[in-house]
Write a protein that binds this DNA or RNA. Structure first.
Length: 920
RNA sequence: GCCCGGGUGGCGGAAUUGGUAGACGCAGCAGACUCAAAAUCUGCCGUUCGCAAGGAUGUGCUGGUUCGAUUCCAGUCCCGGGCACCA
């Protein structure tokens, strides 16, 4: 074999690696462990396009790299197999989700195998397998049987809470929900409660709990819709009206973990952008809750700026606030009622989107507890019932929204910050010296903050308070294709199934239509309903919140994951995936990990030690230009001479920008078979635009086609060569040929097309060793920092230089193949095997070559010489040269003399190993 | 509106700590080999002035710091992403 026959080579080694179980990983090893994980895919029916494998290639390279460095590397793959699209497909086509999901998975697997990944498929998991979701249900029960102990800041078994209640009531365990009708009880009271009362109370503490929540109910479709299926208050499909409907819903008490989720960010290596997104989502704010008297009622407001309390000019309640009815005066009642009607007529989305200021005065006045000033109480839709206390104090001089509100309704503005307020717009400064602020006068705002909070607490009219924007996570879906809850409802009490009753298998159904009253399809199954089983199913993120643990011990039918095994593999060392899961999946899995840690099931509390976000590969669309009203197309360069309409064409019919006219005429069943063309230089050239890659834009490129045409190794390297993994960049099929040429050139270092084998055992020269070791250094460093694109360049430079020197020496070529293995494993193994007389030693288990610095050490350097900062010439000088020696050499140089023009240099800057600059 | 990223040749990108801007590749141009094509090889390739040697200019824009700025600072424009009345 003299030519690079990549198809045969790749097929051969993929089969051999499979036969020798080359990627099977053991849980026992003397080697240090390394865990590389990809965000597992939802197996959609559309299959992979070139954008999907980007992260998988990066993780594959890194896994293989770590293996060469002597690590025991866990690199598994599986499928997030429950989900809405399969159910939707089932409704439309009558095919059971289990079947369509299975088909999709088979197609995914075939496409992945094509690319030559080193996944340990013995550990494959599917979240929809009963053997998997048995443990998802089990973890749900762990959460159900646990509460969050706020003083110890950790989850504990709920049985311990019951013991505490029996002994001393709930004095040291206040209810998480301040709105619950019973707030405190004694041991005697607890012991006298009926079972239902006790269970209702315990439900208020559980980490997985049931409550009432609002869902988007669409009467016409008879189903509940996700937020993104609702557009402008109507359903995305069909445009039917959507209303809020209250339903029984499961929740996860993620808010209990808010502060730990925040603190945990300091212990992980995520990008700053990612940490910031999570921080914003959690939305921690510090402030105070303050009570204002309104007649005989008390109105609590939450504020982050208690230091501005003397600047309060009005109050605003959310329209839903419970005090609204009680405090509204008779004169204002009809105005308030009108406003409430207006608010009720609006969807949540409309209210969110509204920029116009609206509101109405209730007629009531609150009393400022410090200044005794009377403050008008308003209602407005910009105040949200769900955040803080649902009421705010309006400080116009310090808050832009309050300012706009005061202006709009002509409420007089009190200035407490002197010249910091210009009368035109609010200033949220904390640096101003307070005025018009009673006993706070003269204090700097940020100093007044702790002072006034203490005063508030002393006076007993409020307290210091930390608030979070994050809400508890809704954990029910009124759907079929998800994990059933291991819960039976008897007399209104949620009864958990016993561990021995798991898994509670998802029953087969013949129809996926929603159940009555917004319930899920399970409510249509008489046998299910007779057993009083919960009819909701779990959401998509249930299975994905803990899957990284199951990979460690995927076949264990006694435990979700053996503790010794999870102690060995521990955290995921490198997690690779897209930013779209920034807040959802990552926060949920972090919370589950913390809960499992608290309950003693695992030994670490952050699942992912390091996170790498891959960018998107954008589509590069091609356009043809049809002359208006004619079946005639004009080439890109001439289109401005006509009135044209741009039409997307399939990028796979275009070579660079040149359209294949024959293919185009056959496209879309011959729609353009009779079309005419106006060409430039005999070619039809297309327009180009970068857009999201999608079928509808005809700009998707299938990796299968590229692997078929150029081979998996070329494809892998080209995906990396496009640019840094973390950033988004457009796809350009044309460029792949450059990488393919590189591999062919590499091949020719080993085989000559005429002469055949041409490697030799002759000893390498220093120049050749220098090329090799320079490459070892570059590949080692750049792979470690995920700079895969510059690695590909470094390989190209190396092969170019070795070709130039006609270096065919095994001493150089063999280590080069090891370096290349993570990037292009097939060709590396083929040549490595040939080099070693087809021995059984696989390049996959070779050792990463050791860098010998002495071969790359330079003794002299060609220094750039700048005159006044502008590079004028180059001067080769020994690295050991002193300042004085350099100056002497410099002044002798003809170019330097020319620029000095007889003048003496003012200063000569010589930075060793960098540059020389002469200041004249 | 707020918060993050990012603007470098015709294109993707490189320049790791302030030190030769444009590595590597694509596209393009010229040439060699060939009956021809493919494959391969060689040279050129930011803009501009110049026959050349060489010079000027150049990393979105305007300033600043520095012997020296793609890199640091201030302002500004544009693009991408996230959040969106969070008190």
């Amino acid at each position: 074999m003299m030519e690079y026959q990549f198809r045969d080579i790749e097929k051969k080694w993929q089969q051999r690696w499979k036969d020798s179980k080359a990627y099977k990983v053991s849980n026992q090893s003397n080697r240090p462990k390394y865990y590389v994980l990809d965000m597992f895919p939802y197996p959609s029916g559309a299959g992979l396009h070139v954008g999907h494998p980007l992260g998988y290639i990066a993780s594959d390279i890194f896994s293989r790299f770590k293996r060469l460095q002597g690590f025991n590397v866990l690199h598994p793959m599986g499928y997030d197999a429950f989900g809405l699209p399969a159910e939707q497909y089932a409704i439309e086509h009558g095919i059971h989700p289990a079947i369509s999901t299975d088909n999709n998975i088979n197609n995914f697997r075939r496409q992945l195998d094509n690319i030559g990944f080193c996944f340990d498929w013995h550990r494959e998991i599917r979240t929809s397998d009963a053997g998997y979701y048995k443990w998802t249900q089990w973890i749900f029960l762990q959460l159900f049987h646990a509460y969050y102990d706020r003083s110890e800041r950790r989850a504990r078994p709920i049985s311990q809470l019951v013991e505490a209640f029996e002994k001393s009531g709930n004095v040291s365990h206040p209810l998480p929900n301040a709105q619950y009708p019973v707030q405190s009880f004694t041991a005697e009271e607890w012991n006298s409660f009926k079972e239902k009362e006790r269970q209702d109370l315990l439900m208020e503490y559980r980490l997985a709990y049931c409550g009432t929540g609002e869902v988007n109910w669409c009467e016409a479709l008879g189903t509940v819709l996700a937020n993104d299926e609702v557009v402008n208050g109507v359903s995305e499909r069909g445009g039917h009206p959507v209303v809020k409907k209250k339903l029984r819903q499961w929740y996860l008490r993620i808010t209990a973990y808010a502060d730990r989720l925040l603190e945990g960010l300091d212990k992980v290596e995520f990008s700053d952008a990612m940490k910031e997104m999570q921080t914003n989502w959690i939305g921690r704010s510090e402030g105070a809750e303050v009570n204002f008297a309104v007649g005989s009622e008390e109105l609590a407001v939450y504020t982050t700026r208690p230091d501005t309390i003397f600047g309060v000019d009005f109050m605003v309640l959310a329209p839903e606030h419970e005090l609204v009815q009680q405090i509204t005066t008779d004169e204002q009642r009809s105005a308030v009622e009108n406003y409430l009607d207006y608010v009720n007529s609006r969807s949540e989305r409309e209210r969110m989107a509204e920029k116009k200021i609206s509101g109405v005065f209730t007629g009531a006045y609150a009393i400022n507890p410090f200044s005794e000033k009377k403050i008008p109480v308003w209602i407005s839709e910009y105040v949200l019932a769900g955040y803080g206390t649902g009421a705010i104090m309006g400080v116009p001089c310090g808050d832009q929204r309050d300012h706009a509100f005061a202006r709009h309704f002509s409420i007089p503005i009190t200035n407490i910050i002197g010249q910091y307020y210009n009368g035109e717009e609010a200033n949220p400064t904390k640096e101003a010296i307070l005025e018009n602020s009673g006993f706070l006068d003269g204090m700097v705002m940020k100093d007044a903050m702790p002072f006034i909070i203490n005063k508030i607490e002393e006076k007993g009219i409020g307290k210091r308070k930390v608030n979070f924007k994050m809400r508890d996570a809704a954990f029910s879906r009124q759907r079929y294709w998800g994990e059933p809850f291991p819960i039976k409802w008897v007399d209104g009490i949620a009864n958990p199934l016993k561990e021995s009753e798991l898994p509670l298998e998802l029953p087969h159904v013949d129809t996926y239509k929603p159940g009555p009253e917004g319930e899920g399809p399970l409510a249509n199954i008489p046998s299910w309903v007779e057993q009083e089983l919960e009819t909701n199913t779990m959401p998509g993120y249930a299975g994905s919140s803990w899957y990284f643990l199951r990979y460690m011990d995927p076949h264990n039918d006694q435990e979700f994951c053996n503790r010794a095994v999870s102690d060995y593999w521990n955290q995921v060392d490198l997690y690779i995936g897209g930013t779209e899961h920034a807040v959802g999946h990552l926060l949920y899995s972090r919370m589950w990990t913390k809960a499992l840690f608290d309950l003693g099931h695992i030994g670490f509390e952050e699942p992912f030690r390091r996170l790498l976000n891959q960018g998107m590969i954008q589509g590069s669309s091609r356009f043809v230009y049809r002359i208006a009203g004619k079946n005639e197309f004009v080439s890109y360069g001439l289109k401005d001479q006509y009135d044209t309409q741009a039409i997307h064409v399939d990028v796979n019919m275009v070579d660079g920008v040149e359209l294949d006219l024959e293919q185009f005429k056959k496209w879309r069943g011959g729609e353009y078979a009779q079309a005419g063309f106006i060409l430039e230089n005999g070619k039809y050239l297309c327009g180009v635009e970068t857009e999201k890659m999608s079928k509808s834009k005809f700009n998707t490129v299938n990796p299968d086609d590229l692997v078929q045409k150029y081979g998996a190794d070329t494809f892998r390297m080209y995906e990396m060569f496009l640019g840094p993994v973390e950033v988004s960049k457009p796809w350009d099929t044309k460029g792949i040929e450059g990488v393919h040429r590189f591999l062919k050139k590499l091949w020719r270092l080993f085989y000559d097309e005429q002469k055949g084998k041409q490697w030799t055992d002759s000893p390498a020269t220093d120049a050749e060793k220098k090329i090799l070791h320079k490459t070892i250094k570059k590949i080692g460093e750049d792979t470690e920092r995920f700079s895969f694109n510059t690695c590909v360049s470094a390989f190209m430079i190396c092969v170019n230089e070795l070709s130039e020197l006609k270096c065919y020496k095994k001493e150089i070529l063999e280590p080069l193949l090891v370096l290349l293995t993570p990037y292009a494993p097939h060709i590396a193994e083929e040549l490595y095997s040939a080099l070693n007389g087809n021995s059984d030693q696989s390049v996959l288990d070779a050792s990463f070559p050791a860098l010998q610095e002495n071969y790359i050490k330079e003794t002299s350097k060609a220094y750039p010489v700048a005159i006044n900062g502008k590079t004028r010439t180059e001067l080769t000088i020994e690295l050991s040269a002193s300042q004085q020696e350099v100056e002497e050499l410099l002044l002798k140089d003809a170019v330097v003399q020319k620029w000095l023009d007889g003048k003496a240099p003012k200063k000569i800057i010589y930075v060793k190993n960098k540059m020389i600059n002469v200041v004249v």
